[in-house]
Write a protein that binds this DNA or RNA. Structure first.
Lengths: 215, 215
DNA sequence: TTTTATTTTTAGTTTTGTCTAAATTTAATT
DNA sequence: AATTAAATTTAGACAAAACTAAAAATAAAA
């Protein structure tokens, strides 16, 4: 697989999680910042290689082979992110771009040794699950902070939005994965939350709460 | 720079060390397993980018800019090799190919953090020097085992040939970087050496001695 | 159910890096 | 110095992955 093919497979994988019946050409083009016509060309190629099933105008789904390939790419991406943060001292908002390159390094032995070196982590620095060598993904129990009951405590376990802006906001508020959040109150009018983190009161907008996973 | 351009620059760098007045088109083609006509095309492009100075039929040399780029690629290659051996447990004959891919990962911050993580190593697993972030290469004092005086002791500090076959031969004979070699005798007829390593007598052909650096 | 709008595909180009085959330049030999 | 051999370059073509513009199919609206 070329780097370009891998990028398509990965994007189709992520979009499949949202629309499992079939992924649109335009959606893929949007994610890859390319044109619909380029996507059509590539879908034909991926279909010839039996990585996707594709019927003109009907959207595309991954075959078993494509699904496994996608999980291996995601595995590599997330393991490298763990390496960058845990071993090299990058912050969680700096690692995505570099991992986008590292995920295309080919050696299977490399990734399995890296996995062992990192202690077989089950989640990346943003709380996203890491597929194991067989492609099995351990489901991480989680709820959005916007949807939990009030008067209870939770651990932060992940973020839905991994944008730099959001991650930097969390850094500023000293919210990290593992932080304990006690939900004090929810405002009826706009769903703003009052929470307590490390004994400190904090007001959190619904948009924030809607992008933070807790357990 | 594209991956392909980086590969050309790297090859020209290595060949320059042997023929500093100018590197031949065919030599480059041989190293990259490509055709002379492809090399000519690329030399024009590299020349336009001011990475090499190139005059038709006259061979090619690196500009200062090209020379620095080359050293940064070599730096990345060798640092990744150290990582693979020291941290992930690869053996020294397994790392070249993987490092060939890793050397093209772009982030400068990444490579400097990796350097620090590895403890600022000065040589890779084969004893080759690692350029620092400014491109400075600390010269490693070394002689070929084939050229040292007899009745003296040395440390193995590097290999000239990094082929799997040679490295596996050294593994079999329990010769590693750091091993102490005492040169007992040299046969006049074919320059075969009798040496002592870890108290064990060993006969070594001239071809072997000619590819092992000691100090 | 037509008509309109949107999405997707086709057809034809472009760029990058490669190739083959032919032409040219340099080097070696008689 | 002329001829042959080797190395190098040019010219033209191709595959991969992208693009633009136009055509076709599907979905939405009147």
């Amino acid at each position: 697989m070329t780097i370009s093919e891998e990028n398509y497979i990965k994007v189709i994988y992520h979009l499949s999680l949202v629309s499992p019946k079939g992924v649109n050409t335009n959606a893929i083009a949007g994610m890859l910042d390319t044109k619909a016509s380029s996507v059509t060309d590539m879908l034909k190629k991926l279909s010839d290689k039996d990585l996707v099933s594709y019927q003109k105008y009907q959207g595309v789904t991954l075959t078993d082979k494509g699904f496994f390939s996608a999980k291996m790419i995601v595995r590599k991406h997330r393991l490298w992110e763990v390496f960058l943060v845990d071993k090299l001292g990058f912050s969680w908002d700096e690692v995505h771009e570099i991992a986008e390159e590292l995920e295309h390094i080919k050696s299977e032995q490399l990734i399995n040794k890296l996995d062992a070196f990192l202690g077989f982590p089950v989640a990346d620095p943003h709380g996203d699950p890491i597929p194991d060598a067989k492609g099995v993904i351990k489901k991480i129990e989680k709820q959005l902070l916007s949807e939990v009951e009030i008067n209870a405590s939770f651990h932060c376990v992940g973020v839905k939005d991994s944008s730099t802006d959001f991650l930097k906001y969390l850094d500023k508020q000293k919210i990290a994965l593992g932080s304990v959040v006690k939900v004090i109150d929810r405002e009826d009018f706009d769903d703003t939350l009052t929470v307590e983190i490390d004994g400190k009161r904090l007001t959190i907008s619904n948009k924030i709460a809607n992008n933070l996973y807790v357990q």
